[in-house]
Every structure is written in C-alpha cells, then in structure tokens.
C-alpha cells in the first residue's frame, strides 16, 4: 500500500468523522443533505458485500466495517435523532435522476455480468455522483457552515489522493482499473469548484 492510498483513506475517514461529530456535538444536521448521506450508505452497502465472500486484510475489513457503521449512524442522526433540525425543504435533489442512469450504466459497463460485480460497479458509479445533492443544497441556500466545508474538503482530498494512488500503482504494479479510475476522475471534478471556493473564501 502506498502513501497516497493511506492518506486517502485517512482523509476519507476524517471527513466521515468530522460530519458525524458536527451533528452529534451541535445536536443539529442543519445544512447537511440527508439524501447524499443515504447515497453514501447505499454506496458502502453495495460495495462491501465482499466482506462476506473474501478476506483481503485486517485493515481492509476493519475500514469497511467502520465506514458502513458510520454511514448508517449518520443517516440515523439525520432522519431519526435530529430529524427536527434537518432542512428537508432545501434537500430537494431528485434522487431518481442519479439512481436510474447509475443503475443502467452498471448493467451495461462492468467487469463481469454477475450480481456482486454489478453491485460493486453500481457503488463505484453512485459514489462519483453521491455528493451532488449536498452541493446542490449549498448552491440553493447559498451558505455552508465552516465545518461542512471542512467535511467536503477532506472528502474531495480523499478523491484526489486516490487518483495519485492510481497513477502510482499504474507505474509500479501495472495496476489499472478503468471503471474505478474513470469514475474517480469524474467524481474529483465535482469537487474542483468547491476546492476553489474553499481556498479563496476560506481565508477571509
């Protein structure tokens, strides 16, 4: 495992924990898109089904379980525990606009036409667009709490580091997964506009 991959995973974990702590400590999920969090829970669920079929490493298993548990706790916090603080009015992105094309594409373009592989592909495609309801919500309300922008920063950083990881693996291991790489690049592009605002506005 290379340094980009480790830092990417740490950054991903940090993003998830920042969001969860923000909600728990402020007892509020204002400004957070519940729809994006549902999509991330769905992403982890459909991708980590291999927890039941093959063992890769202790690190791999632990991280998968942590991501899954955190994703479901976050959804629980938004839709159950702090439901009253959830701004459902502005979380109005239509999920079918993402789910329908992503489902279709995962059946058409995958490594092999088997249930687990199609679900894995679905999770990769879905992750690349899962943040859109959150970005849509921010552009609609025109505001985001500082802590929410930190969450998005680490989530975007994780994606950028994974690209560096793939460049590294391509050169050192001849490793290349087209589905993951293309989706990963698409996903990272969505964060570029946010990164620009984070750096320029964040300093004021």
């Amino acid at each position: 495992m290379n340094i980009f991959r480790i830092l990417g995973d740490v950054s991903h974990l940090l993003a998830i924990i920042i969001l969860l702590l923000k909600i728990v400590k402020s007892k509020s999920c204002a400004g957070i898109s519940g729809k994006s969090q549902i999509l991330f829970a769905l992403v982890f669920t459909t991708r980590y089904l291999d927890l039941f079929t093959n063992f890769i490493s202790v690190y791999n298993t632990v991280m998968k379980v942590v991501f899954l548990v955190c994703a479901y706790i976050t959804v629980y916090m938004i839709y159950v525990k702090f439901r009253k603080t959830f701004d459902s009015e502005n979380d109005s992105f239509r999920l079918e606009f993402l789910l329908v094309p992503v489902t279709g594409l995962s059946f058409l373009e995958n490594h092999s036409f088997t249930p687990l592989e199609i679900l894995w592909t679905f999770s990769i495609y879905l992750e690349s667009v899962a943040i859109l309801p959150q970005l849509f919500m921010i552009s609609k309300t025109g505001e985001a709490e500082t802590i929410t922008t930190h969450y998005l920063f680490f989530l975007g950083l994780y994606r950028a580091l994974y690209i560096a990881n793939w460049v590294w693996r391509y050169h050192t291991e001849n490793f290349y997964d087209q589905i993951a790489v293309v989706s990963g690049v698409v996903q990272t592009i969505f964060y570029c506009d946010f990164f620009y605002l984070y750096v320029t506005k964040g300093r004021q």
Partner: peptide
C-alpha cells in the same frame, strides 16, 4: 497495461 479488478481498495 494489465487490467486488475481493484477490490483491495476502499
């Protein structure tokens, strides 16, 4: 390049 399915990644 060899195409390997990257299931070890998160």
């Amino acid at each position: 390049a060899a195409v390997v399915v990257g299931k070890d990644e998160l």
